[in-house]
Simulated assay, not measured.
Amino acid sequence: MISYGYKRKHICVGTFTTSEYVLTAAHCLYSIGISNIEIRICITNSNDISYENLFSIQKVILHKDCNPNTYKNDIVLIRLDRSIIQMLYLPHFTYIYIY
């Protein structure tokens, strides 16, 4: 899963279809404005954002029958500016044991 929005604010989520493509709702993408979107991957809070987990949009492929008024076919594919394969990792967690 990915988070995206603008100015470090979370707006919507998407899911990977390949290492460079994300599937998400078209109405979220266009409500923000494509040029303002920050795509964030593998973060647990906004303080963890760096170049490695901040991606840009290279291409947008809107469903040909998308209708923004009815949300019919409200899907879009986003091609990222680079592959995520090199940076995938599990976030570090602090475990608390409760007895």
Results as ranks from 00 to 15, higher is better:
Y4F: 14
Y4I: 14
G5M: 12
Y6R: 07
K7R: 07
K7D: 06
K7P: 06
K9E: 15
K9P: 08
H10Y: 02
I11S: 09
C12L: 07
V13A: 14
V13E: 12
V13S: 14
G14S: 04
T15A: 11
T15W: 05
T15F: 12
T15K: 10
T18P: 04
T18V: 05
Y21M: 10
V22L: 05
V22K: 00
A25L: 02
A25G: 05
A26W: 00
A26L: 00
A26K: 01
H27P: 07
Y30V: 02
Y30D: 04
Y30C: 12
Y30E: 04
S31L: 13
S35R: 10
S35A: 14
N36A: 15
N36I: 06
I37Y: 03
R40P: 03
R40V: 10
C42N: 12
I43T: 13
T44L: 14
N45W: 04
N45A: 08
N45E: 08
N45Y: 05
N47W: 14
N47R: 11
D48Q: 10
Y51A: 14
E52C: 07
E52W: 07
E52S: 12
N53Y: 04
L54C: 10
F55S: 09
S56D: 11
S56R: 12
I57W: 02
Q58I: 04
K59C: 10
K59A: 08
I61Q: 01
I61T: 04
I61L: 07
H63P: 09
H63G: 08
D65L: 13
D65R: 11
D65C: 13
N69P: 08
T70G: 03
T70D: 05
Y71F: 15
Y71G: 12
Y71T: 07
N73M: 01
I75V: 05
V76Y: 00
V76D: 03
V76F: 00
V76G: 00
I78H: 01
L80Y: 04
R82D: 07
S83G: 02
I84A: 01
I84S: 00
I85K: 12
I85V: 14
I85E: 15
Q86I: 13
M87H: 13
L88E: 06
P91M: 12
T94Y: 12
T94C: 15
Y95M: 13
Y95R: 11
I96P: 05
Y97Q: 12
Y97H: 13
Y97P: 03
Y97E: 14
I98E: 09
I98H: 03
Y99K: 11
